[in-house]
Structures are given as C-alpha cells and as structure tokens.
Design a protein around this nucleic acid. Structure first.
Lengths: 139, 139
DNA sequence: GTAACTGCAAAATATTTGCATCCTT
DNA sequence: AAGGATGCAAATATTTTGCAGTTAC
C-alpha cells in the first residue's frame, strides 16, 4: 500500500520523508480534494504547519497534485492523473463541491465541454466547478 | 452617470454612502472583475480597509456583485446581471482570466454547457473559469 | 432622533521567510 | 559527507470583531 506513495515520490525525484509520505498517502486514501486545513486535522500535531505549506507547494510544482479553484477562499488540492507532469497539467476534468458535506470530488469521467469563445480570446486551461448535492448526501 | 449607482443602491435598500457609491461606481466602470486589492488601489487612502471588506460583503449579500472562484487565493468580484437578486444568483456565465494582464472578464454571452453528471449528483450552480490570453493581449 | 455605517484599534487567522538542525541519499 | 528537508521563530499579510463617533434618512 505504501508502494505507490514511494513510487510516486521517486518518480518525481523527491526524497522520501515522513511528511511527504504521510501527506501523499492522505491524498491517495481520500476520494475528495483536501484543503490545507484538512491535512492539518488529519495528521494531528505530527508536522509543522510550515512543512505542510512547503510539501503542498512541492507537490504542485512537481505535478503530483493540482489546485481546485473555489469562491470561498479555501484552496483545495487533489491528485493529478498520470497524464500530468511537471509544468504540464492535463486535469481538465470537472470538480464537484457538495453544499452539504463540503466534500470536493474530481469527476474524472465527465468531460469539460468545448466552448466557443469570443474573437481574440484563447483558452489555455478550463476550470469547471459544479456545486450542489453529492451522491452520498442525496441518498 | 451617477444615477445608475444611486438607483442600484436604492433598489437594494442600502443607504447612500460615499464608500458604497465609489466602490459600486468602480465596478460599473470596470469591464473586468475586481479583487479586494484592486479596489484599495483604485480608491487610494479614501476608505478604511475594513470598510471595503464590509462593503463588498454587503454587495454580495444583496446580490449586486458575485464572487468568481480562482485557484490563486485572490477572490474577485464582478457585477451581477439584473436577473440576480438577494439570495438568488443567476450568474451562470463564464469567466475568463487572462494569464498576461490578469484581467478577469465576464463572458456574458457564452453559455455554460449542460452537463451529464454521474448518478446521485445534483448541480445547483456551475462556475466555469477559462484562462488564457484575452482579446487585448492577443493583438 | 434613530438606526445604520464608518474608522480605528486590536484580535484572530493565514502565509512567507531566514536560519540552525536534522535527515536522506 | 553534502544537499536537501524540517522545525522554530518571527515577519508579513489577510480577515474579523468590538466599539465609539459620525452620517443618512
């Protein structure tokens, strides 16, 4: 189970440290996105807050995780798919944020529709965040 | 020219104060979205930072402006269209953020495409933020 | 005149930076 | 052993809250 964590770190030429292992493991076990706060809460007092900031930034730089935009001033992070690599993200999938439980999902299988932009506008990236009621809360 | 500002404030049962007039005027003159910082910069030392926070919150509550999600931890605000009213936003249009000049546009005439969500997911709101190169920077 | 709004001060929170120490390789 | 990562302290930035004075109506 730890294998995948170690593999990912090695593949990205990162040294294997406790904080990186634990935080990456957290992402792999979670089906939703995580905010800085979620990580703090789930790791207890184990790591310094600064270490979490730096670890997340490292993962983003390496293309291991990506940020999910939100309007509530709480940046969330989620694992990138294999197609992502350093400096080159391909996570044009849709994110779903539940109004009830606040879980954020990556809906990998829903494609972002193509858009017809006004003349002169050129898209390089599209973020789509749908909010509403998730499949667990709607039961 | 100030008429529209006053009208909007009255229509929303807000008292007409200097900060509200100035800030709302700013939004009406700007074709893009504004972050807190933009407002501070454009009003000089005229208003207390706290007043700007409170004015923005008031406008959001009244449905005069809406927030635009972003992945860079800088919430931006833009005018809502007429269809918006208190507690009931209808700004399902697309936002475009320019990578070069950082201007954020509301592309009112580009519709958000309908989505087929997985079973159990129910959408109440869709935010779509496209980034790339805007029509001014691409010239 | 009264209720609402603003500015100031300060608290609470979030993020960044420098540096000495410790850990990975 | 060397370079990189971490923890701590502190600087910086952001947002919220309380309260007294001021303004809109």
């Amino acid at each position: 189970m730890h294998t995948q964590v170690i593999d990912t770190l090695k593949k990205n030429q990162l040294s294997i440290t406790d904080s990186r292992k634990t935080i990456l493991q957290l992402f792999m076990e979670s089906d939703g996105a995580l905010a800085h706060m979620d990580i703090e809460n789930n790791t207890g007092e184990e790591f310094d807050r600064v270490t979490i900031y730096r670890t997340l930034q490292t993962f983003v730089d390496k293309g291991i995780i990506h940020t999910i935009p939100s309007a509530d001033n709480a940046i969330r992070y989620a694992l990138c798919k294999d197609a992502c690599s350093e400096g080159h993200h391909h996570d044009n999938h849709i994110h779903f944020m539940c109004d009830h439980c606040s879980t954020t999902y990556c809906l990998d299988h829903v494609e972002v529709p193509a858009l017809q932009l006004p003349g002169g506008f050129m898209a390089s990236r599209t973020d789509m965040v749908v909010s509403g009621c998730c499949n667990r809360c709607s039961k």
